[in-house]
Amino acid sequence: MREFRYERAADPAAAVALLAAAPDGAFLGGGTNLVDLMKLGVATPDVLVDVRELTSREVADLPDGGLRIGAGVPNADLAADRRVRERFPVLAQALLAGASGQLRNRATTGGNLLQRTRCGYFTDVTKPCNKRSPGSGCGALEGVHRNHAILGQTIAGSDDPATCVTTHPSDMAVAMVALDAVVRVLGPDGEREIPIAELHRLPGSDPSRDTTLRHGELVTAIDVPALGMPSRYRKVRDRASFAFALVSVAAALDVRDGVVRDVRLALGGVAHKPWRASAAEYVLRGMPATEASFAAAVESELEAATPLRDNAFKVPMARNVVVRTLLDLAGRDTERELA
């Protein structure tokens, strides 16, 4: 592990100022991901600015029925919050599907959004990885990639500096994307709001960047607007618990008189970012709430899939779990569920 300085600040602005002056520094939240990566030599910050006690641990009501979630709220607390469970079951379920009880006690809402990938080449400093070591190539493209992305990868050859085929590991972020959350950040230039769909990015030509955050920007809160639809999170994994998603789905569905009035759909475990299934949503709005419609919608989304040698199974897996989730939601009475 590289030696580092540990800093605490009086308030968020001071923390931002400290980090802005440290180009190789990092914010420390719950540390459940960053500290592991430091032990492995994957993350090598020279300064850690501890923000765990600085950002809000409050979940506050917004006037529209939404919630403002402080970045410091532990995952366990957020999952247990009565308002979250009642208004946004998809979010509570996603949180509980992630990690273990111990980790959820420690991990923060802001930090959860910013988890790094679990790609085995990213976490092994002796192997090429464009995300960890830009320009070194991608070990996963021809290597072990069973649990890697099927959508939105950059596939340009193992030695190409743009290649990256990994996934984003968070469950919570998938739900947040389906919920059209807004991420509030404080940076050296002040505050700004980032629609969550614009926070995480695809690898494009620069796999080293997971998000559009600029150095020194601190997530202070996440706003979740009112939903008004029943919602669910489903997660497929290799064992019953304590495992990352092979495929997960966050869905919300508003069906009136047998017709889909509105739908939100996001997929986890399939791309470099939580994947908003906009094509499927577009196809589905106004269609009868039937298995055929759901299947056609998700298939239209998955037409873009470019699976790798060993992960083509994720395409039918994603299709099947989405159809099931939508059927489950369609079977529920929207009015009664929200009453």
Partner: peptide
């Protein structure tokens, strides 16, 4: 759910 494949991942309520 804990008695079903996929367990608390909520992947099935008996379908399939």
């Amino acid at each position: 759910l804990r008695a079903l494949p996929g367990s608390v991942g909520n992947t099935t309520h008996g379908e399939g």
